[in-house]
């Protein structure tokens, strides 16, 4: 929670909002090396790449604030993408609805399993991830399957005022979810449960319901992302969403949201994800080999975690 203390603790404030510092630093440095970075075109590209997976980041942010995690988000995205490709012959709308329905259901299953079994969400979603990935590989027979209905592509390519429809959708989702998180009963319950599950239980918050709901919403968001992926690339493959979980988790953490839960905002997650995508974009521009890119993302996660562990935010002595 962004608390405004009477006396502003500057160190704390910077630590809480360090993502902005990072982003500014990144843009300044990269621009200095390669002026092609901050151009209208490149920024557009960045936002295009951002908008689809970014929706997943919204869900992951809520989950981490809740004190949970979901490794299967990429798999859900892949499943939804797959469904919309395969159901294209039946019409665009049915395909989209079915995909979103299935993805949301998958999210719900994750939530139900985690809550009912009492097992930590980490190993459970590892299991569901494998399960769902496996299903996609089976259905696609490990091939990349192209879609048959070309008009599906129009969904993603529509432009309004020169900006892609998907970008509008993404921004809208960010705004809506941030509002719910900060101002509505449901959102504040998420923060409370993430802060201390027992205390939340004792004051009568519907802890289990909140948890299942957040997993379901994450499934919903991941499935929308999956549908958009299908719309943009018109291909179903088991490889879609492979890197998503890692990228999105790193994004949320870099944005300044703590893994232990109870605090954070969608805005922070947004900027965190912006940072990751910009970084990847920059690495491409600077002609880094793609494998180096993977290494750097992994290393980044570790560095962020380490910094988090050492910062003042950890109240070690009370």
């Amino acid at each position: 929670m962004k608390g405004r203390l009477r006396q502003i603790n500057y160190r704390q404030a910077i630590s809480d909002n360090r993502i902005f510092v990072f982003i500014v630093a990144l843009f300044v440095i990269v621009q200095a090396i390669n002026p092609g970075f901050i151009t209208a075109n490149n920024v557009k590209i960045i936002f295009q790449n951002l908008s689809i997976e970014g929706m997943v980041a919204i869900g992951m942010a809520m989950l981490i604030i809740l004190g949970e995690i979901d490794l299967s988000v990429g798999a859900i995205m892949s499943v939804s993408c797959c469904v919309s490709i395969y159901l294209q012959p039946y019409g665009i709308l049915p395909a989209i609805l079915a995909s979103i329905g299935i993805g949301t259901l998958a999210g719900f299953l994750n939530g139900a399993l985690v809550v009912k079994s009492g097992v930590s969400s980490l190993p459970i979603t590892l299991g569901t991830m494998g399960l769902m990935n496996g299903i996609v590989y089976v259905v696609t027979e490990s091939q990349s399957v192209p879609g048959t209905n070309k008009s599906f592509l129009y969904v993603a390519d529509t432009m309004i005022g020169g900006i892609n429809l998907v970008i509008y959708l993404f921004i809208a989702l960010v705004v809506v979810f941030e509002f719910v998180l900060q101002k509505c009963y449901f959102g504040r319950s998420i923060m409370a449960v993430g802060g201390n599950r027992f205390a939340a239980e004792y004051v009568g918050l519907r802890v289990d319901r909140v948890r299942v709901l957040v997993f379901t919403l994450t499934g919903l968001l991941s499935s929308i992302a999956g549908v958009m992926t299908a719309a943009r690339y018109n291909i179903a493959s088991g490889h879609i969403g492979e890197q998503t979980a890692l990228a999105v988790i790193t994004a949320v953490l870099i944005g300044g949201i703590s893994l232990s839960g109870g605090e954070g905002s969608i805005t922070k997650a947004f900027f965190g994800y912006l940072f990751i995508i910009s970084l990847q974009n920059a690495m491409r521009l600077l002609k880094f080999p793609p494998d180096l890119s993977t290494i750097i993302t992994g290393a980044l996660l570790i560095v962020i975690l380490a910094i988090d562990a050492v910062t003042i935010r950890r109240n070690q002595f009370k």
Partner: peptide
């Protein structure tokens, strides 16, 4: 942590 190192060593 090992999610991170997994990426690093894979690359």
């Amino acid at each position: 942590v090992t999610l991170g190192t997994m990426s690093v060593w894979a690359g």
